[in-house]
Design a protein around this nucleic acid. Structure first.
Lengths: 167, 167
DNA sequence: CCAAGATTGTTAGGGTACGAACAATTTCCT
DNA sequence: AGGAAATTGTTCGTACCCTAACAATCTTGG
C-alpha cells in the first residue's frame, strides 16, 4: 500500500475518516509491508525464474519441500508450505500429470499418502534451485547481511506469535 | 517453511542434495519468512476479523484503498494493493454486486473508471477498520515499537529494490 | 471387541489471481 | 490534422486457494 501516495498522506486521510479514533499506524505499516513485500517477491520470482519451467510459486514450494524431505506425507507438505490440504490436492494433481511427483498410499496407515519426486522432478530441482537462490540473493541485495538476518528474525517472531495464538 | 523441521535440519538436507554447490541460506531464510509471515497474518486476519463481514483479504484491501482515496481510478487501486488489474476487475464486480462500491466512467478520460464506496460500504469500513487495526496491533505485539518500525523499513527496502528492478 | 470419536485426503463450489489478447480511448509525432 | 503508438479496463483461459462436507481409515474407552 505504498504506491502513489505517501505514508503521511494516507495516515492523515484515515484519521479524518475515523474522526479521532486512535489508530496504531506503526502496526498498520508493518502488516501492509509484509504483504507488499510478499507479493512483489513472489511475482518477481515467478516471472524471472519459475516461468521458464512452467511452475507456479505454489508448485515450486511443493516441489522444494518434497525434494528436501521425500518421501513425505501430504499433511506435512501443506503445513510446511503454509496452505490448506485442499489446495495441495490440486497442485499435486497438476505436478503428477507433468510427471514431476508420484503419490503412493502409506503401507502402515491407509489414510496417509506419501509423495516422492520422479527422476524428472529431481533433475528439475537440481537445475532450478541454484537459480532460485541466486535470485533470492538479488532480492535482498539492498540489505546488509545483518539486516537480512534481522528481517528473518523479526518475521519469525510475528509468525510465531500467530501460531501460538492459534493453539 | 518452518513447520515440522528446524532450519538447521533443512539446510543440511539441501546442502546434501546439491552436493557442495554454494547456497546463501540467509537470503533463503529471509524470503521464506516473508511468505510464512504473510500467509500467517493473512489467514489470521481473514479468520478473526474479516470472516464476519464476508470480505476476503483482497476485497478488504480494495475497500480500504477506495475508502481512503475515493473517488479513485482502478489502476491506482491495483497499484496500491499490489495485484493485477485483471484481478481487480473480478473483485470490483463482486463488491459491486454486494452494493459496497460503484463504478463510473471518468468524464475527462474515457478509458478510466472511477470507484466510490456506497453508504453501505462506508458504514462497513467505519465499523471494520478499527477492529482490523486492533488485530494488527495484536499481531506485532511480540515486537517492540522500534522492532516494528525496523521490520516495516526493511520490507520497504526489499519491495523498493524489486520495483526499481522492474522499471 | 467394538462403537464413538478423531484424522486424513479428496471433492464441490465460490472467489481470487495471473498473463495475454482485445476494443475503446487518448497522446504523440510529423 | 491524422495515423501510429501507448494506455486503460475487460474478457478469457488456466491455476490456485479456501471452507465445508465427505468417505475411508485409525484410535480409544468401556
Amino acid at each position: 500500500m505504498a504506491g502513489h501516495h505517501t505514508i503521511t498522506e494516507t495516515e492523515r486521510q484515515v484519521e479524518q475518516k475515523l474522526g479521532g479514533l486512535p489508530i496504531d499506524f506503526t502496526a498498520t505499516a508493518a502488516v501492509n509491508n509484509i504483504f507488499r513485500g510478499a507479493t512483489a517477491v513472489r511475482n518477481h520470482l515467478e516471472r524471472t525464474v519459475l516461468r521458464a519451467s512452467g511452475l507456479s510459486w505454489t508448485a515450486f514450494v511443493v516441489m522444494w519441500v518434497v525434494w528436501v524431505w521425500e518421501p513425505i506425507e501430504t499433511r506435512v507438505i501443506a503445513s510446511e508450505g503454509g496452505f490448506s490440504k485442499a489446495t495441495l490436492t490440486g497442485v499435486l494433481t497438476t505436478l503428477e500429470a507433468r510427471n514431476f511427483v508420484t503419490r503412493e498410499k502409506s503401507a502402515t496407515d491407509g489414510r496417509l499418502v506419501l509423495v516422492r519426486l520422479t527422476d524428472s522432478g529431481r533433475e528439475l530441482m537440481e537445475h532450478l534451485f541454484p537459480k532460485f537462490n541466486a535470485m533470492e540473493v538479488e532480492i535482498v541485495s539492498g540489505l546488509t547481511e545483518d539486516e537480512t538476518r534481522t528481517l528473518a528474525t523479526l518475521l519469525r517472531k510475528v509468525t510465531q506469535q500467530l501460531e501460538d495464538y492459534e493453539a
